[in-house]
């Protein structure tokens, strides 16, 4: 759908946003969590990665249904990367007693999701890989900030150390996505122009 068209359609009530995929701006980098010990902390970290895996996979499905194969593939790849990270956490820190993901997902503060979970509201059916990578970059940055905050504030020494390691890993991921973005073509200015838009036409 053309953004111009959408804005025209929505008229006075267009408020603060447009149909454009924006550089994701989501809220705080996850709520501070109170963890009892290192195992508890790593369990949270593992669940956080799994939430990200599931979300990327849902986004990939949505793009696949809308015949956007490039972005589909990218979201699938991101989902696989997060799964590898989750598996690594499980193997290195939780192998003795593998935890079970709570069926209702992890409860963050009201209105929040895990810091590494992509915001589905940022999607657009004509988005390009560059936009998808911007979403991924914001996720990695939030995760990095989140672990850095815990590394500074946790009372337990082992938790602080584990959080420092996680923050360093996430910082590496930020770098990886930034490099990936540099190699990815920037979208044309009218990337969202659809000659046959889904909104009511003249």
């Amino acid at each position: 759908m053309s953004t111009k068209k959408a804005v025209k359609q929505t008229g006075r009530k267009k408020a603060a946003t447009s149909a454009k995929v924006r550089a994701p701006v989501r809220k705080k980098p996850g709520s501070p969590i109170s963890v009892t010990d290192e195992i508890d902390f790593m369990t949270r970290a593992w669940m956080m990665e799994l939430e990200a895996v599931e979300r990327y996979s849902t986004l990939a499905d949505a793009m696949e249904e809308h015949n956007n194969p490039e972005v589909t593939e990218l979201f699938r790849k991101l989902s696989r990367i997060e799964q590898l990270h989750a598996d690594q956490i499980l193997e290195e820190h939780l192998s003795k007693r593998p935890p079970v993901l709570p069926p209702g997902g992890i409860r963050w503060d009201a209105g929040e999701e895990g810091p590494e979970t992509a915001d589905p509201g940022e999607l657009h059916y004509r988005m390009q890989p560059y936009h998808a990578l911007q979403i991924a970059l914001a996720c990695e940055q939030r995760a990095c900030q989140f672990f850095t905050k815990i590394a500074r504030s946790a009372k337990n020494t082992a938790v602080r150390k584990a959080a420092r390691e996680m923050a360093a890993e996430e910082a590496e991921h930020v770098q990886l996505v930034e490099d990936w973005l540099k190699r990815t073509p920037k979208p044309d200015p009218d990337w969202d122009h659809d000659p046959d838009p889904p909104v009511q036409s003249d």
């Binding site: 959408a6 359609q9 929505t10 009530k13 408020a15 603060a16 946003t17 447009s18 940022e122 999607l123």
Partner: peptide, 8 residues
């Protein structure tokens, strides 16, 4: 998001 993008 399609008909009321401002709801983002």
């Amino acid at each position: 998001v399609t008909l009321r993008p401002e709801q983002r």
